[in-house]
Amino acid sequence: MSRRLMVSPELTRALAFQWGFARRRAPRAVDVPGGFAVFDDRYPGSHDDNKLILWDAGDPATVLRTADEVLAGCAHRLVHVDDDELGAALTPAFTAAGYQPAVNLVMAFRGDPPVGEPAAEHLDLETLLPVLRRHWRESLPDAPDRTVEQLARRVETRLRGADLVGFRGVRAPGGELAARADLYVHDGVAQIEDVYTAPRHRGQGHARALLRSLLAEAAGAELVFLVADAADWPREFYARHGFADLGRTHSFLRT
């Protein structure tokens, strides 16, 4: 099943950006045939900080064995397969082994950068961390406090991932932070990541305002991209605002 990654130049740049970001933010990386794994022992419950990334692989049995061996110290197994054809071929084996599959869309901005948009607020960690704790507590009401704290504080590791790592937000009229997102810029490529609107502020245009502000800020980048769940509605929101599909990747999670 081994194959070369055959994708467009833009998708290649977007994937390479993500691989570099993952390596730079991780205290520890382990190379494996066709990919690598990243680890952060400070946040053992964080899937995004402890995962296996593959773009080429052997037969399904070998891939599953590699995941078990490399991620043996983790309570979870998260495997990203950044080749659509390979990920689709591996899905039956991962599913049979108890993994939940997901398909992700890598989307590039194709429109004209917005002009004259109000700048989003620059959020420092002191401002952002209480918001993240509250959002994770709302999402995981039964999770231990230690888990919520780890999920919030792992944002600190992102600061090492790119030349520019910015946390941005917009506020509701009452002053509460309504929507937030990350912006990463490195070597001419920009990624918009972790766009989130608090449930009580959804449907009021905050995400749109934030996205347009981020696009204006990233206007000088040669490529602006984001990753969306292929099965969830935000992909349609991004498409309405100028993003088009570059390609698909796959992820497999077992908890």
Rank of each mutant, 00 (worst) to 15 (best):
D82M: 12
A219L: 10
Y238Q: 10
P44N: 01
T127P: 10
D112G: 12
E176S: 07
E85M: 12
K51I: 08
A207I: 02
I192Q: 02
A216C: 10
Y99T: 05
E126S: 12
L211S: 07
D83Y: 04
D59F: 09
A198E: 08
A181E: 08
L15M: 14
A209T: 03
S46C: 09
Y43F: 10
Y99H: 06
G35R: 04
A244G: 07
L54I: 02
L86S: 07
N50A: 03
R240F: 08
A162Y: 01
V32W: 09
G45N: 11
A209H: 08
V32D: 01
G161W: 08
G58H: 02
D145K: 04
P27V: 00
D145V: 01
E117V: 12
L52F: 03
A230F: 13
A67G: 04
A89G: 00
G73H: 02
D229A: 05
L71I: 04
R153F: 03
D83L: 02
H80S: 15
C74S: 06
H241D: 01
G175M: 11
W233A: 13
A72M: 00
F17H: 00
D68S: 09
S251T: 09
L78A: 03
F225N: 05
G166Y: 07
L223W: 00
V195M: 09
G20V: 10
G34A: 03
P33E: 00
P101W: 05
R110N: 08
D124I: 04
V165S: 11
G111V: 02
A228P: 04
A75S: 13
D245L: 15
L78Q: 00
H47T: 14
V115M: 10
R212V: 03
R13S: 13
A143L: 08
T62E: 12
R13H: 03
A61F: 14
V38I: 05
V148I: 11
